[in-house]
Design a protein around this nucleic acid. Structure first.
Lengths: 162, 162
DNA sequence: GGTAATTACCCACAACTACCCACAATCTTA
DNA sequence: TAAGATTGTGGGTAGTTGTGGGTAATTACC
């Protein structure tokens, strides 16, 4: 980040915000918003790593960000069962996907199935990663999240929103 | 900030005060008051980040200020549901907007809809950010705020007004 | 090793966005 | 007061973006 000339600070630091409605085509491709492509660092080489989200959606990491996760996994023990299990759970669903000339990545059938994606998808910038949702699923999850304790939520907001 | 000669101190530190009446054109553009543009820091690169306000209006942050919010969000956990939810709620409605040669930013349809903006809009300097209101909505909100406990309000005033 | 299925690459086009120019109204300055 | 500069508003145009589909290369399978 610090090394880039200041005029493209917003375009080169792997930070993603905003919400976009796109469509998944018959070949399993989705567009990556142009703004997201522009803010992908050169080190990521036009490549994202897609995997299961903790919510029923697909998580899309810039390659550079994913490499950090890989390094964290590399430091885990091969002997401790809990570590092995964690590595397996994290690694098995991930796969790299380079976007094509039109700016689309190809999703794997297993991830599309996991996120229950149909034609209409919602792409959300989550700062350090991207989420791909079925809009209907997100509506339900949003609804469920209304039950989060308002006090805890407000405390959080008070620390973060300026 | 500290490096600027004193005479344009007020013009270079991302501080906004005052109220302006402008109009939203058919392409979804609104002018940013010239004074606000002048007080935008160079680090913000002529760019604001627009997002949902906590009131039914649009919040407009100088890019530099928004970056701080982003950094706060970046420190939250991807694993805790309440954190994830908060990041999503905060990031999804935000989008950067650089003003054009005439000094206008383009609003997104979803934000215009959220703030129920029509042709006439009111732009208000809120010190560290800017608000864009439908004047009618603001009138209603002002009316509602008369019901705020006067004691608490006066206590606040006592601490702040010299 | 040959064939079928899958994947990656290419082209085409409609819709949209960002950029440019124009002009009237306002403010500044001589 | 007059001339010049700045500001706010409108609209045209070229370039970009999102979407669909075709073809060649690669992979998988028998």
């Amino acid at each position: 980040m610090g090394n880039y000339p200041f005029y493209d600070m917003t375009l080169t630091d792997n930070t993603f915000i905003g919400e976009y409605a796109y469509s998944l085509d018959s070949k399993g491709r989705v567009n990556i918003p142009a703004k997201f492509r522009q803010s992908l660092s050169a080190d990521s080489q036009n490549t994202f790593v897609i995997t299961r989200g903790l919510d029923p959606c697909i998580w899309v990491y810039p390659l550079e960000q994913w490499k950090e996760i890989e390094n964290n996994l590399r430091n885990l023990s091969s002997v401790k069962n809990i570590h092995r299990t964690f590595v397996r759970d994290t690694a098995r669903y991930a796969s790299p996907s380079t976007y094509d000339k039109q700016g689309r990545i190809t999703l794997t059938p297993s991830l599309t199935e996991y996120a229950v994606l149909e034609k209409d998808v919602l792409i959300i910038g989550m700062i350090n990663k991207i989420e791909i949702w079925n809009p209907n699923t997100l509506k339900i999850v949003d609804q469920q999240n209304l039950e989060i304790e308002p006090d805890a939520y407000d405390d959080l907001a008070d620390k973060i929103i300026l």
